Simulated assay, not measured.
Amino acid sequence: MQYRMKKFQLTLEQIDGLLHRSDTGRFATINENGYPYVIAMHFVYFNNKIYMHGLPKGQKVDNLKRNSKVCFEVDELFGLLTDNIENACDTEAEYNSVVIIGNASLLEDLDYKREVLNKLVEKYTPQLVGKELPDNMIKGTAVIEVEIVECTGKYHK
């Protein structure tokens, strides 16, 4: 483990808080040529897993079907620490970040997909909580589940 990780680790409670309050995370898969492919996605942290939704076809879905090993990252930047510095190279950032390594799959169970999609509604459009999601929407939406293998959080202040 890097020195900075040992000294500046987030607690489990801080990691949990960041995963619940973050609006956007970065989801990384490996493409067919072996290169990382990273996209920003809305997500919900639920049942100790990461869930995202989107179209049932596309590069991220193709990539995870080919290779389930993925990475997910969230962060929050509070600002740059520039007081009393004379060299731009001495500028540091105040932030929190979480990196998750895991295995991704597409949910097939329609009842569980509905539950996860309702959690996404609750997070992003709380004014629509309680409105029934149409069955065709549930069936036509891909829901990605990331089973967490490793999760690390760090900060700098």
Rank of each mutant, 00 (worst) to 15 (best):
I30H: 05
I30W: 05
I30R: 12
N31Y: 02
N31T: 12
N31C: 03
N31M: 00
E32M: 04
E32K: 14
N33V: 10
N33S: 13
N33P: 13
G34V: 03
G34M: 01
Y35S: 03
Y35V: 01
P36V: 03
P36N: 02
P36K: 06
Y37D: 06
Y37G: 00
Y37H: 15
V38N: 08
I39L: 06
I39N: 06
A40G: 14
A40C: 09
A40L: 01
M41E: 02
M41W: 06
M41Y: 06
H42W: 05
H42T: 11
F43Q: 02
F43L: 01
V44P: 12
V44Q: 04
V44I: 10
V44H: 01
F46H: 10
F46S: 04
F46Y: 15
N47E: 10
N47V: 00
N47I: 02
N47Q: 09
N48D: 12
N48K: 11
N48Q: 09
N48V: 08
K49C: 13
K49I: 00
I50P: 09
I50D: 06
Y51M: 02
M52E: 01
M52V: 13
M52F: 03
M52D: 03
H53F: 04
H53R: 07
H53I: 04
G54P: 06
G54V: 14
G54I: 10
L55P: 10
L55W: 08
P56N: 11
P56M: 12
P56W: 05
K57R: 15
K57A: 15
K57N: 14
K57D: 15
K57H: 15
G58N: 05
G58K: 00
Q59V: 15
Q59I: 15
K60W: 01
V61W: 05
V61C: 05
V61R: 09
V61Y: 08
V61T: 09
D62G: 08
D62T: 07
N63Y: 07
L64Y: 08
L64W: 05
K65N: 13
K65Q: 12
K65S: 04
K65I: 01
R66L: 11
N67A: 03
N67S: 06
N67C: 13
S68Q: 14
S68G: 09
K69D: 09
K69M: 06
K69F: 05
K69W: 04
V70F: 03
V70Y: 09
V70I: 10
V70D: 06
V70L: 00
C71M: 13
C71K: 13
F72L: 04
F72G: 04
F72P: 14
F72A: 06
E73P: 11
V74E: 04
V74M: 07
E76V: 15
E76Q: 12
E76G: 10
E76R: 13
L77T: 14
L77N: 06
L77F: 06
L77V: 14
F78V: 10
F78S: 09
G79C: 02
G79Y: 02
G79P: 12
G79E: 08
G79T: 11
L80G: 14
T82V: 15
T82L: 05
T82I: 15
T82D: 09
D83H: 08
N84Q: 14
I85Y: 08
I85L: 07
I85P: 12
I85Q: 01
I85T: 14
